[in-house]
């Protein structure tokens, strides 16, 4: 009896929580299907609409070149994540497996970098990239985010869990370091690697401040900048429904990605959490 009451309370609580969490998504979808005039006519926004329309979606893609931004974002995300993966895996390997002078010192300095807030780094990055003449280039967009101290740290900790004897066994069989890394270490740490990739994809997809700073040509805009542009394109007022339509279009790929990989993400996060 007591159990049941307890369970009921828990479920009620969870349901309320779910509603709170999901409501913004609903609001976003709802607004995106209200026409611009309906939206502006509602003095107090309604919780539903009787005349859904897709016109916002077409205007989102026509008023600004959202399709082009999508392409830019995909390129940016793929290249950044790919390069980041190579950099992260190799440096985690170096820190966990190789012996070199000053290894601990370098790693400590690396960790110390984590203490510096991102916002501070952005300023120096901006100066550096501008001085290198890389404004309005993909290189300039991508370069600052191809490494991540935290992911290197996470992966290094994971690599170090792999017993030393495995390495010795591989060496006796004449396995090269590279092959050992790719065929043994990475597969064993696959959940973490997958997690890192997904988190990075999300980060890239959502990145806003850096692309906004380093690009001022439309040819290099990412979707996040696109949203801002749509908003500013309203007839004297913010075109909120069109913006919401853009937001829905942009979030959908990520949500699909999450739904496909959510088991792996959860496994990786919880593993990384307890061990790292």
């Amino acid at each position: 009896m007591k159990d049941r009451i307890f369970k009921t309370v828990i479920y009620i609580f969870l349901s309320v929580w779910a509603v709170i969490v999901l409501f913004p998504f609903y609001w976003m979808l709802l607004t995106s299907v209200k026409s611009y005039s309906t939206y502006n006519a509602e003095y107090i926004p309604k919780f539903f609409t009787l005349s859904p329309t897709l016109e916002n979606y077409s205007s989102a893609f026509t008023t600004v070149p959202l399709g082009g931004y999508f392409l830019n974002t995909i390129i940016f995300t793929l290249v950044t994540t790919g390069v980041m993966l190579i950099v992260t895996v190799l440096s985690a390997f170096a820190f966990s497996r190789l012996e070199f002078k000053g290894k601990n010192l370098v790693f400590t300095l690396f960790l110390a970098l984590m203490m510096i807030p991102n916002e501070l780094v952005i300023i120096t990055n901006f100066v550096t990239i501008t001085n290198m003449g890389l404004r309005n280039t993909f290189t300039g967009l991508i370069l600052p985010s191809v490494t991540s101290v935290f992911y290197i740290y996470l992966l290094k900790e994971n690599f170090e869990q792999i017993p030393n004897e495995l390495y010795k066994a591989a060496k006796v069989d004449g396995t090269s370091d590279m092959k050992y890394l790719l065929k043994v270490m990475v597969p064993i740490c696959q959940p973490t690697v997958v997690t890192i990739v997904i988190l990075k994809v999300i980060e890239c997809w959502n990145s806003y401040v850096w692309p906004r700073l380093i690009t001022d040509k439309q040819a290099y805009f990412l979707v996040s900048n696109g949203i801002q542009e749509i908003r500013e394109n309203g007839f004297g007022r913010d075109n909120i429904p069109a913006m919401m339509a853009a937001v829905v279009s942009i979030s959908t790929p990520l949500i699909i990605l999450f739904l496909i990989f959510h088991k792996k993400i959860m496994a990786g996060v919880s593993r990384g959490g307890t061990k790292g």
Binding site: E165, L166, K168, A169, A170, V172, D173, G174, I188
Partner: peptide, 29 residues
């Protein structure tokens, strides 16, 4: 180096590759 010597080694903790099947483990060398 070890691979030139033609030695096989078995370790205390077996040191099998956990993500590979027995067949793949044996084929690894």
């Amino acid at each position: 180096p070890p691979e030139k010597r033609g030695v096989g080694m078995v370790f205390q903790s077996y040191a099998l590759y956990p993500h590979l099947t027995v067949r793949k483990n044996i084929m690894f060398p």
